[in-house]
Simulated assay, not measured.
Amino acid sequence: MSKGLRIAFFGSSLVSAYWNGAATYYRGIIRALYDRGHRVTFYEPDAYERQQHRDMPDPDWARSVVYSAQGTEELDRCLKEAADSDVVVKASGVGVFDALLEERVLELQRPATQVVFWDVDAPATLERVEKDRNDPFRALIPRYDHILTYGGGEPVVSAYKALGAKECVPIYNALDPSTHHPVAADPRFAGDLAFLGNRLPDREARVEAFFLKAAELLPQSRFLLGGSGWGDRALPENVKYLGHVYTQDHNALNCSARAVLNINRDSMARFGFSPATRVFEAAGAGACIITDAFKGVELFLEPGQEILVAHSGEEVAEHVRKLNETESRRIGQAAMKRVLSEHTYAHRASKVEEVLGFQKSGTRERVA
């Protein structure tokens, strides 16, 4: 049996999706790496009440270590332990000690240990360092063995290489069919259009334009809004606010509404090639997806056949108005077939192995 990699992963949270949009992505990638023989220890801070809103126990496919966000003593111990790993990953947006971690993980770099920066919000990171030439992370970019990104395509790759990155490879969102799949419809989530997303400054205007505008144009239709932070927002009467929707309810939501809406954040929409985790979750459940237009959508799902694309709230409303149950089911089934054949986390984990130089024999060639 081949020997897998020992991977130390510093990220926001593996066990809680609360104010943590990267949770599904982390879980999918890490579980797929485990299935391929690798062992991951995930280090996360006790911050933002995530541990109080956990939506899963410690998994059997990863070791979860929670460290205090009050002082660095526990984090220091985690870094010392991580020094014995084959690969050390610092993800963007940990939310606590980010600048410190970006520098400290590089101290663990040696011939037997690759150090990776895994950017789960590359457009935001790149815009930040381009605006501030004195941003400490800017000078660290060339020192990492690899930059992996949640998405962004060639625009993100070119931007990182221009900043001196040795290598930049997008590892796109995908589907974990063991967690996101068709289930029976749930009356709690019955409606014509559902949108799930936390209220964030660079998303709110697009939610207003694509979701709330469509709701205003279709007063007789039922709209569902899920996610944290929307409780004090004035909403049209035909919009039901669900609050935070736990991961275990995502399948039911995706299988109960006639259509599910994807809305990219401003930075993701500008760079393109960054389909959200929600797209693959919904496709895996056989949902009919409507998305705001973004460059590169056709690389993942075929517009008009596997996904519906809208350039405005008016176009979202028109899709909802025309969509019947038969067409919704047809599009959803086509999307599910496509993602199962091309866009699972098993596909992404294979790409990660390729980047890290891991060979099935268990040997590893260091990729400079």
Rank of each mutant, 00 (worst) to 15 (best):
residue 2 S to D: 12
residue 3 K to E: 15
residue 4 G to I: 03
residue 7 I to Q: 04
residue 10 F to C: 10
residue 20 N to W: 00
residue 32 A to P: 09
residue 32 A to G: 06
residue 33 L to A: 06
residue 39 R to H: 15
residue 40 V to A: 10
residue 40 V to H: 01
residue 42 F to N: 03
residue 44 E to Y: 06
residue 45 P to V: 03
residue 48 Y to C: 05
residue 53 H to F: 11
residue 54 R to C: 09
residue 54 R to T: 15
residue 59 P to S: 10
residue 61 W to G: 03
residue 61 W to R: 07
residue 64 S to F: 02
residue 69 A to D: 11
residue 72 T to G: 08
residue 76 D to Q: 15
residue 78 C to H: 04
residue 83 A to R: 15
residue 85 S to M: 05
residue 87 V to R: 05
residue 90 K to W: 02
residue 91 A to I: 00
residue 92 S to N: 05
residue 100 L to I: 05
residue 102 E to L: 12
residue 102 E to D: 14
residue 103 E to N: 13
residue 107 E to L: 14
residue 108 L to V: 10
residue 111 P to Q: 14
residue 112 A to L: 11
residue 112 A to Q: 15
residue 112 A to S: 15
residue 113 T to F: 05
residue 114 Q to D: 15
residue 116 V to E: 03
residue 116 V to S: 03
residue 117 F to I: 04
residue 125 T to Y: 07
residue 127 E to D: 14
residue 133 R to E: 13
residue 133 R to D: 11
residue 144 Y to R: 09
residue 147 I to L: 11
residue 152 G to W: 05
residue 155 P to I: 10
residue 157 V to H: 00
residue 160 Y to I: 01
residue 162 A to F: 00
residue 166 K to T: 04
residue 169 V to E: 08
residue 176 D to W: 11
residue 177 P to W: 13
residue 180 H to W: 13
residue 181 H to C: 12
residue 185 A to D: 04
residue 187 P to R: 11
residue 187 P to H: 05
residue 189 F to R: 10
residue 193 L to G: 00
residue 198 N to R: 03
residue 201 P to S: 13
residue 204 E to C: 02
residue 204 E to M: 11
residue 204 E to T: 12
residue 205 A to T: 07
residue 208 E to D: 10
residue 210 F to Y: 15
residue 217 L to M: 11
residue 219 P to E: 11
residue 220 Q to R: 14
residue 221 S to Y: 10
residue 222 R to G: 03
residue 222 R to L: 06
residue 225 L to T: 01
residue 225 L to G: 02
residue 225 L to V: 01
residue 226 G to S: 07
residue 226 G to C: 05
residue 228 S to K: 07
residue 229 G to H: 07
residue 230 W to I: 00
residue 231 G to H: 14
residue 240 K to R: 11
residue 241 Y to N: 07
residue 244 H to E: 02
residue 244 H to L: 04
residue 244 H to F: 11
residue 245 V to K: 06
residue 246 Y to W: 10
residue 248 Q to R: 14
residue 248 Q to G: 04
residue 250 H to P: 05
residue 251 N to P: 01
residue 252 A to V: 02
residue 255 C to I: 02
residue 259 A to V: 05
residue 261 L to F: 03
residue 267 S to K: 13
residue 269 A to P: 00
residue 269 A to C: 08
residue 270 R to I: 02
residue 272 G to A: 09
residue 276 A to C: 09
residue 281 E to Y: 10
residue 283 A to M: 06
residue 286 G to F: 12
residue 286 G to N: 13
residue 287 A to M: 09
residue 290 I to Y: 09
residue 292 D to T: 07
residue 295 K to V: 12
residue 299 L to P: 00
residue 299 L to Q: 14
residue 300 F to H: 14
residue 302 E to H: 08
residue 302 E to T: 15
residue 306 E to V: 00
residue 307 I to M: 11
residue 308 L to T: 04
residue 309 V to L: 07
residue 309 V to Q: 09
residue 312 S to H: 08
residue 313 G to A: 01
residue 314 E to F: 04
residue 314 E to G: 09
residue 318 E to D: 13
residue 321 R to E: 01
residue 322 K to A: 07
residue 325 E to C: 05
residue 327 E to A: 09
residue 332 G to H: 12
residue 333 Q to N: 15
residue 338 R to C: 10
residue 343 H to C: 06
residue 347 H to D: 15
residue 353 E to V: 03
residue 353 E to L: 06
residue 355 V to W: 04
residue 359 Q to N: 14
residue 360 K to R: 13
residue 367 V to M: 14
residue 367 V to P: 01
residue 368 A to G: 04
